[in-house]
């Protein structure tokens, strides 16, 4: 009995308390917004929009936070994978035009899935080349990492112009994902429901991999103390490459989903979204996937509530949220204690 009590205390000291604080913050924000909005149906619609945005930003940000945590690499080129994924995915979906226009949900989802998978494969492979050519030569030097990865981002944007042209490309959503479901006064956009579902599946999969597989444990251990992981006989560089590829592929998936969400894609969409991605990574605590998830939900919800209540404050609200959280927890919601 006393053993289990001590074990519970140990778990609370070990991070459950911080996790609970993050969740309470989300609940508090939702309740505050409910009071501000004043209408339950509108609040539900805004909450769904916020959750959908948060899930998509989480998908894009999760790889970046692990890349930073594992090898201390600041990859400002992460936005390139978002843009590239969107363009590749949309090209695939455009080629599957009849599937996108079908009245069958299954066929529509198959088209989106094909675009997402091919987008992820291409960005994953591109991530491998980017890591070897651009990132590897600047391991351990933050200034060079920022400069060269920004340069890489610009080069990729220009390559997108070369292949797909300079104009924004509109993407109609698949037929059955257009419009909204209505329940009385509550309006739930279908695509946002899909985005929330995909985000939850990705988060659950990542959590399962990180907590139930040896490679996941190694990634978490490496984020905390890569030197010790090497001292136990595991090569961290190989692990990092694998994480970089997975993070790039997830950014590509995020790009496809963000493109369908905005219904238009541009070469610089990645760079535009990166502001929000960095805010989420910082709020969550560098290197923490769980923190990134909580941070993304907070930013998504805050953005949508404020956009409704005070539209001009929308982007500023995310920055304000980051400032407030950093004043409360200077290392983010769920920081990873660095052991090296």
């Amino acid at each position: 009995m006393s053993g289990s009590f001590e074990s519970l205390l140990a778990r609370l000291r070990g991070g459950d308390g911080a996790r609970r604080s993050g969740l309470l913050l989300i609940v508090a924000l939702m309740l505050l917004a409910l009071a501000g909005v004043g209408s339950l149906p509108t609040w539900i619609t805004l909450t769904l929009a916020g959750l959908a945005m948060g899930m998509m930003v989480f998908i894009m940000a999760s790889g970046l936070t692990l890349v930073f945590g594992l090898m201390d690499v600041l990859n400002f080129g992460h936005g390139a994978f978002i843009s590239l994924g969107a363009f590749v995915g949309v090209s695939v979906m455009a080629a599957l035009g009849p599937w996108m226009e079908s009245a069958s949900l299954a066929v529509n989802l198959a088209a989106v899935l094909a675009g997402a998978i091919i987008g992820m494969v291409v960005t994953g492979l591109f991530g491998y080349v980017f890591e070897r050519l651009v990132v590897m030569p600047v391991y351990g030097n933050h200034l060079k990492q920022i400069l060269i990865t920004m340069g890489g981002l610009i080069v990729v944007e220009q390559l997108i112009y070369v292949v797909w042209g300079p104009d924004a490309i509109p993407i109609p959503r698949p037929e059955t994902l257009k419009g909204a479901l209505t329940f009385g006064d509550v309006v739930l956009e279908k695509y946002r429901l899909l985005a929330v579902a995909v985000g939850l599946v990705i988060f659950a999969t990542m959590t399962a991999v990180l907590t139930r597989t040896k490679i996941g444990l190694l990634v978490r251990a490496g984020v905390e103390n890569s030197e010790m992981v090497e001292s136990l006989g595991y090569p961290v560089t190989r692990l990092f490459i694998a994480v970089f590829i997975a993070g790039s592929a997830l950014a590509g998936l995020g790009g496809v989903m963000w493109g369908l969400y905005e219904e238009v894609i541009t070469a610089h969409m990645g760079m535009s979204v990166m502001v929000m991605v960095f805010i989420v990574v910082i709020i969550g605590g560098l290197g923490s996937v769980e923190g990134c998830f909580l941070g993304a939900l907070l930013v998504g919800l805050m953005n949508n509530y404020v956009a409704y209540l005070a539209p001009k404050m929308a982007l500023g609200s995310s920055i304000l949220l980051m400032v407030v959280i950093l004043m409360w927890r200077p290392e983010g919601l769920l920081p990873v204690a660095k052991g090296r």
Binding site: L217, R220, A221, E224, N225, E227, M228, L232, A337, G339
Partner: peptide, 21 residues
């Protein structure tokens, strides 16, 4: 190592599991 190199976010069991290469 001098700083023990414990992975604090992992459980005791997980720390041992990783060490059993």
């Amino acid at each position: 190592p001098e700083n023990m190199g414990i992975f604090g976010a992992l459980t005791v069991q997980e720390n041992m599991h990783l060490a059993a290469r």
